[in-house]
Design a protein around this nucleic acid. Structure first.
Length: 815
RNA sequence: GCCCGGGUGGCGAAAUCGGCAGACGCAACGGACUUAAAAUCCGUUUCUCCGCAAGGGGAGUGCGGGUUCAAGUCCCGCCCCGGGCACCA
C-alpha cells in the first residue's frame, strides 16, 4: 500500500470547516479553579506570541488550550488596539465610519479567535466602542473629579501634528509621537484634562516590590526610572527688598554654602517680573526654544536678572539668573547653582564667570582651589558654618531638618512622574462628561445622564481638528446646574483609559448598576499571568496599575495590583528593525501559511527562539519544520495497521521508545509550567520522533497505541490541525484539546545502568557504565579499573579522587 | 553619564541547581533509492594538529585575572552589542 501523502493544506481546511460548523465545540467546561489568562491578541505581527488573528496562527491558543487542560480557564483575549486610534486612522484612509470599521474588525477577530479554540462566551462581551463602556469610563471620570483626581488646567502639552492631538508624556518616544516615529512632537499651551497619577507616585513605586517575583526585572526598572523618586530638601531663598520667596529643590542641601547663584526656569512665574524690560524678548525666545529643541545637546545659556536673593543658611546675597536648562516641570522650577559640586552648574558658572567654591572635600584628602572639575561625590562638609566637618549623608539630613526647624524649608521627595494628560482632540474615544457654562464654569454631567454618546453622523476629515468641536448638535447643550445654554466638552479620553480596566469589566459585562460586581471581580483578580509586549512597560502597565489603585480606593476591588505575573514577549524584527505598519517592513505570514500550512508556520516561529526574546525574521528554515511534521505524519499513518495486533511481550525497542516518550512528556510539561521555552519542547518532540524512527522495526502493538496517543497529545499545543487529523487516523474519539494532558509514568524512566564520565585533572578521559545506585567507593573502583584511566593513573601520585554518584568521577594526580 | 539585558560553531540556538559545551534544526557535504531529478531514508559536520587507517593529541563559550577537584554558569576588572532613562537639580 502506498504511503499516505502529507498534505497539511488539505486537512487544515477540513478542520477549519468542521470547527466553524460546530459552535458547541468551543463551549469550555466550567472549572471551579479561579485562574485565568488574559491574552492580548495584537492585530499586528510584531508580537512574538501572536502572529495575526485572522488565521489560526497564534500560540496564544496553544497556551490557552494547554492551560485549560491543566484546569485553568481563559477569561478573555483582547486586542484593544483595534478599538483605538488605528481604527480611526484606518477609517479615515478608507473613508468609512470608524464605528462600522471597528465592529467589522471585531467580528473578524472573533472569527479568528474561535478558530483558535478560545473558550469565549460571546454574549458577555461588550466592546470598548459601545455606549455601555462609555458610561463606565465616564462614571470613573466623575468619581475621580469628585475626589480631585481629575482636573483641568492650562499647560504646555505634547502635540503630534500628524495625529492632530495631544499626547501624554508616556506616549512621546524620542521626541516623536509613539505612532508616528518620524514626526517630532511640538509643545502647545492648551487647556487639558489630567488624571492625578502623581497622587499614587509613592505607591506605584512601592508596589513594584511586590511584583519582583512575577514581573521581568527590565519592566520594573523602567517603571522605577519613569517614576523617578528623588530624596532631598526644599529651601526658600528670600527675595531681596520683597517678602516673596524663591523655593528651590535640591538633593544636596549639604552643598548650599557653595551656592553662588539661583537659576530660574524661563517659565518660572517670577521670571517675567524680575527680568528687565530690555531682556523680555530674550526670555520669550528662551521659553520657545525650550519647547522646541532637543534638550540633550542644547547649549547651556542664561543671563542675570539683576535681582538678588538671600541664602537662608549663610545669609549670603546671591544673584538670580535665568537658565535655559532649568525645567519648570521638575521640582520647583528653580535651582541653586553649586558649581563646585555639580557638573551642570560647573559648566554654567564657568561659562559666565560666576564664582566657584568648594564646600565638600574628600574624606581622605584636601581639595585644591580653584577646582578643575566639580567634586560630586560624598565627602566631608567644609566652609559650611555650623555644619562643617559633617559627612555628606549626615549633613544632608541635619541641614534639611534645620530648614524645617527654622521654617524656611523641609525635607522633600520629588518624582519625575507627571499627571496623565487624558484629553484628546479626536472623534474616537469616550467623551469627557463635562459641560462648560458661562455662569457656573465647569460642571460635571450628572450620573443619571450618562453615557454621553458620540454622534454617528460625524464627518472625519483627517484635517487635524477635533470633529466633535465642529459638530454643533453634539456640543450644544444646557448647563445641568442653571439650565442656561452651555457648551459640552468636546475632548475625548485617551484610549489608554479603556485599556486600563476593560479586563475587569469582562468579569461582569452586563452589570448595569456598577462597572462590575465587587465579589465577582474579587473572585478573578488579580490576573495570574499577563502576557504583552515590553513596549507597554511604561504606558499601559503604569496606567492600569494606577487605575487598579483608584478602583481599590473607590471600594470596587481589594487587590492593589492588576497582575501578579507578567510575561513580556519579544518582538519579531525584520532586518534588525521593529516590524511596523509605518515602516512597511511587515512580513505577511499568509504567503507562508499558504505554502506550508499554519501548523508549520507556528512551529517555525516557536522553534526559532524562546518567546521572550526578539527574533529577526528569516524565511530560511521553515522547510525543517515542514519536514519534521511530515515525518510525524508518515510515522503515525503507516503505524495504524500495526495498532491492533495481538498483545505480546514488550520488545527492547518498545521499552526504548516508551522511555523516550515519557522523558519527553516530563520535559514538555516542565517547559510549559516553568519556563515557556517552547523551542526546547519542540526539540524534544523532534528527538522523540527520531528515536521512534530508529526503533520502528521492533515496535509492537503492546506499546504503539500509548506512544501514538501521547505523541499526538504532546504535539497538539503546537500543531492543532495535525493533531486532530492524526487523532482521527488512529481511530480516537473527540477533539484532542479536550483530552487529558499526558502524565509521566516513572516506571518507564528507571535505568538499570548509568554511564558516568571519568575525568583526570578535570579533563574527560573515559566513561564507565555502572549499575544504578552503585556506592561511591565502588564507582571509584570501577573507574580505576577502566583501561584508559588505568593507563593514565599508572605511576602517578593520586592526590584526590572525587565521585559524585550518578554524575561524575574526577581523579587529581601529580607527576 | 546612570540603570537593565546580552555576547556560545557558517547560521537560529541548547546546556534548567557549578558536573560530558554545541542538544534540536538550518545550511553544507557524502551515501542509499531513482534512467534522471524532486521527495524520502541513512550518515558526516566547533576549530586545529598527528596518522594510510582504526585512533589519538591540543585549543575552545567577547577579553584579562580569581575561586573550585571541576566554570558558558560564581567573584573582580575591562571590551563590544541591544534596550531604557537623561540638562531631573
Amino acid at each position: 500500500m502506498p504511503e499516505k501523502q502529507f498534505n497539511p493544506l488539505e486537512f487544515e481546511e477540513k478542520w477549519h470547516a468542521r470547527w466553524d460548523a460546530d459552535d458547541a465545540l468551543y463551549r469550555a467546561p466550567q472549572h471551579p479553579q479561579r485562574k485565568y489568562y488574559v491574552l492580548e491578541m495584537l492585530p499586528y505581527p510584531s508580537g512574538r506570541l501572536h502572529m495575526g488573528h485572522a488565521r489560526n496562527y497564534s500560540i496564544g491558543d496553544a497556551l490557552a488550550r494547554y492551560k485549560r487542560m491543566q484546569g485553568f480557564d481563559v477569561l478573555h483575549p483582547m486586542g484593544w488596539d483595534a478599538f483605538g486610534l488605528p481604527a480611526e486612522n484606518a477609517a479615515i484612509q478608507q473613508k468609512r465610519q470608524p464605528r462600522e470599521w471597528t465592529l467589522a474588525n471585531i467580528a473578524q477577530m472573533k472569527k479568528g479567535l474561535k478558530r483558535l479554540g478560545f473558550s469565549l462566551d460571546w454574549e458577555r462581551e461588550i466592546a470598548t466602542c459601545e455606549p455601555e463602556y462609555y458610561r463606565w469610563n465616564q462614571w470613573f471620570f466623575l468619581k475621580m473629579y469628585e475626589r480631585g483626581l481629575a482636573y483641568r488646567k492650562e499647560s504646555l502639552v505634547n502635540w503630534c501634528p500628524k495625529c492632530a492631538t495631544v499626547l501624554a508624556n508616556e506616549q512621546v518616544v524620542d521626541g516623536c509621537c509613539w505612532r508616528h516615529e518620524d514626526t517630532a512632537v511640538e509643545q502647545r499651551s492648551l487647556e487639558q484634562w489630567f488624571l492625578r497619577t502623581t497622587a499614587y507616585s509613592e505607591e506605584l513605586l512601592a508596589g513594584l516590590k511586590d511584583l519582583e517575583k512575577g514581573w521581568p526585572e527590565r519592566v520594573l526598572t523602567m517603571q522605577r526610572n519613569w517614576i523617578g523618586r528623588s530624596e532631598g530638601a526644599e529651601v526658600d531663598f528670600s527675595l531681596e527688598n520683597s517678602a516673596e520667596k524663591i523655593r528651590v529643590f535640591t538633593t544636596r542641601v549639604d552643598t548650599i554654602y557653595g551656592a553662588t547663584c539661583l537659576i530660574l526656569a524661563p517659565e518660572h512665574p517670577l521670571a517675567a517680573r524680575l527680568v528687565s524690560a530690555e531682556d523680555q524678548a530674550k526670555l520669550k525666545a528662551m521659553v520657545d526654544d525650550q519647547g522646541r529643541k532637543d534638550p540633550s545637546n542644547l547649549e547651556k545659556e542664561g543671563f542675570p536678572t539683576g535681582a538678588y536673593a538671600r541664602n537662608p543658611y549663610s545669609g549670603e546675597r546671591t544673584p538670580i539668573w535665568i537658565g535655559n536648562f532649568v525645567l519648570m516641570g521638575y521640582g520647583t522650577g528653580a535651582i541653586m547653582a553649586v558649581p563646585g559640586h555639580d557638573e551642570r552648574d560647573f559648566e554654567f558658572c564657568t561659562k559666565y564667570g560666576i564664582p566657584i567654591r568648594a564646600v565638600v572635600k574628600p574624606a581622605d584628602s584636601e581639595l585644591r582651589e580653584p577646582l578643575e572639575k566639580p567634586f560630586t561625590e560624598y565627602g566631608i562638609s567644609v566652609n559650611s558654618g555650623a555644619f562643617s566637618g559633617l559627612p555628606t549623608a549626615e549633613a544632608r539630613q541635619r541641614m534639611a531638618a534645620y530648614a524645617q526647624e527654622q521654617g524656611f524649608g523641609n525635607p522633600s521627595i520629588t518624582y519625575r512622574l507627571k499627571d496623565w494628560g487624558v484629553s484628546r482632540q479626536r472623534y474616537w474615544g469616550t467623551p469627557i462628561p463635562m459641560v462648560h457654562c458661562s455662569q457656573c464654569g465647569v460642571v460635571p454631567v450628572p450620573e443619571q445622564d450618562l453615557p454621553v454618546v458620540l454622534p454617528l453622523d460625524v464627518e472625519i476629515t483627517g484635517a487635524g481638528e477635533s470633529p466633535l468641536a465642529r459638530h454643533e448638535a453634539f456640543w450644544k447643550t444646557t448647563c445641568p446646574q442653571c439650565g442656561q445654554a452651555a457648551r459640552r466638552e468636546t475632548d475625548t479620553m485617551d484610549t489608554f483609559v479603556d485599556s486600563s480596566w476593560y479586563f475587569y469589566r469582562y468579569c461582569d459585562a452586563h452589570n448595569s448598576t456598577a462597572p462590575f460586581d465587587k465579589a465577582i471581580a474579587g473572585s478573578w483578580f488579580p490576573i495570574d499571568q499577563y502576557i504583552g509586549g515590553v513596549e507597554h512597560a511604561i504606558l499601559h502597565l503604569i496606567y492600569s496599575r494606577f487605575w487598579t489603585k483608584v478602583m481599590r480606593d473607590l471600594g470596587l476591588i481589594t487587590n492593589a495590583e492588576p497582575a501578579t505575573k507578567l510575561f513580556t514577549q519579544g518582538m519579531v524584527l525584520k532586518d534588525g528593525a521593529k516590524m511596523s505598519k509605518s515602516l512597511g517592513n511587515i512580513v505577511d505570514p499568509e504567503a507562508m501559511v499558504a505554502k506550508f500550512g499554519a501548523d508549520t508556520c507556528r512551529l517555525y516561529v516557536l522553534f526559532a527562539a524562546p518567546p521572550d526574546k526578539d527574533m529577526d525574521w528569516q524565511d530560511a528554515g521553515v522547510e525543517g519544520q515542514f519536514r519534521f511534521l511530515g515525518r510525524v505524519y508518515r510515522f503515525v499513518t503507516r503505524s495504524v495497521d500495526r495498532l491492533n495486533g495481538a498483545p505480546a511481550e514488550l520488545t527492547s525497542e518498545d521499552k526504548r521508545a516508551l522511555k523516550k516518550l515519557h522523558q519527553t512528556i516530563g520535559k514538555i510539561t516542565q517547559d510549559f509550567e516553568e519556563r515557556w521555552h517552547f523551542n526546547t519542547s519542540i526539540a524534544a518532540l523532534m528527538e522523540l520522533t527520531n528515536e521512534l524512527y530508529a526503533c520502528e522495526a521492533g515496535l509492537t502493538s503492546g506499546a504503539l497505541r500509548e506512544i501514538l496517543r501521547n505523541l499526538i497529545l504532546l504535539l497538539e499545543p503546537f500543531t492543532p490541525f495535525l493533531a486532530e487529523e492524526l487523532w482521527e487516523e488512529i481511530g480516537e474519539q473527540g477533539p484532542v484539546f479536550r483530552q487529558r494532558w499526558p502524565e509521566v509514568n516513572p516506571e518507564y524512566l528507571v535505568e538499570d545502568t548509568l554511564e558516568i564520565p571519568v575525568q583526570v585533572n578535570g579533563k574527560l578521559r573515559g566513561k564507565i557504565r555502572v549499575a544504578t545506585g552503585t556506592a561511591e567507593a565502588d564507582i571509584l573502583d570501577a573507574a580505576r579499573r577502566d583501561e584508559k584511566i588505568a593507563v593514565l593513573l599508572e605511576g602517578k601520585e593520586l592526590i584526590k579522587a572525587i565521585a559524585i554518584p550518578g554524575r561524575m568521577v574526577n581523579f587529581v594526580i601529580k607527576g
